[in-house]
């Protein structure tokens, strides 16, 4: 069982280059178990330049997994290499890199992320012959919001009108983070009442990510899995705890009561 790998086995598996599928799995494993070992970081950074593991559509599966893992390992050495990945030919490498740069929280990523929005909403169309748009807009806009890129507010605003709901939600989320204007968060709350489960899930996680306390009860009552509602409420609770210097105020207490009822 691969899950039963020791740290040494996992590191050996990412360092070797004979078996591509084992290396691919090891990249995922190191992220999943948040292995912050220097050797793991070095090997993952190496994997971002892999040329061996190629998918039928010309993509780089190992690079995608390595980029994802590096977002979880909390190491600033990954920032510049991940910024380089934003110009990869592989859409999914760019998407993973944007998500990881968001998690690493380093503002150096802002200019390169911003470049992916070039052409604005008019350019945000389907990539020819692919199942996705030309850029990973959702991930890019979310990252810019989390990184506090207030200089991009005007650039992302038009994406509120995009045809894709998830891009609109990402934009609402980022604009709330960048402006603290509650009307954006309230629009996400309305999305909790939508018809499609997939979109309700997305709105739940967005509200959790922005830590919007007034959404607590609406999240608890949303028609979706308790597991996801708990994750969203945890996000809000943790934002509230940070604002209150970890004091248990009335809002935190109420959020915990909502969570208890979903266990």
């Amino acid at each position: 069982m691969a899950e039963a790998w020791t740290l040494e086995q996992a590191i050996a598996s990412i360092q070797q280059t004979e078996d591509a599928s084992q290396r691919y799995y090891a990249a995922w494993w190191l992220g999943k178990f948040r292995v912050e070992d220097e050797r793991a970081i070095a090997a993952l950074l190496d994997a971002l330049k892999d040329e061996v593991d190629r998918s039928p559509d010309g993509g780089y599966p190992l690079r995608r997994n390595a980029a994802k893992a590096l977002g979880k390992l909390n190491n600033p050495a990954a920032v510049e290499p991940l910024i380089d990945c934003l110009s990869s030919d592989d859409y999914y490498v760019r998407e993973s890199a944007a998500q990881s740069l968001e998690m690493l929280g380093d503002r150096r990523a802002i200019p390169a992320l911003r470049l992916l929005l070039a052409g604005g909403i008019a350019a945000a169309v389907k990539a020819e012959g692919k199942p996705h748009l030309v850029q990973p807009y959702e991930a890019v806009i979310e990252a810019l919001g989390t990184l506090g890129a207030t200089e991009v507010v005007e650039e992302i605003q038009p994406f509120l009108e995009h045809d894709f709901e998830k891009i609109r939600y990402a934009t609402l989320r980022a604009l709330y983070q960048l402006t603290q204007d509650a009307s954006y968060a309230q629009k996400l709350m309305e999305a909790l009442k939508g018809d499609k489960l997939q979109l309700r899930r997305s709105a739940l996680l967005d509200l959790g990510a922005i830590g919007y306390v007034p959404a607590g009860t609406a999240i608890a009552n949303c028609f979706a899995e308790n597991s996801l509602k708990l994750i969203a409420l945890k996000g809000i609770l943790e934002s509230q705890l940070q604002r209150s210097s970890e004091q248990l105020d009335a809002d935190s207490q109420q959020l915990m009561t909502l969570m208890d009822n979903l266990l």
Partner: peptide
């Protein structure tokens, strides 16, 4: 985890 710690504090209280 911050949220788990908070729930623990609440229980201790």
């Amino acid at each position: 985890e911050l949220a788990v710690k908070a729930r623990c504090q609440k229980a201790i209280q």
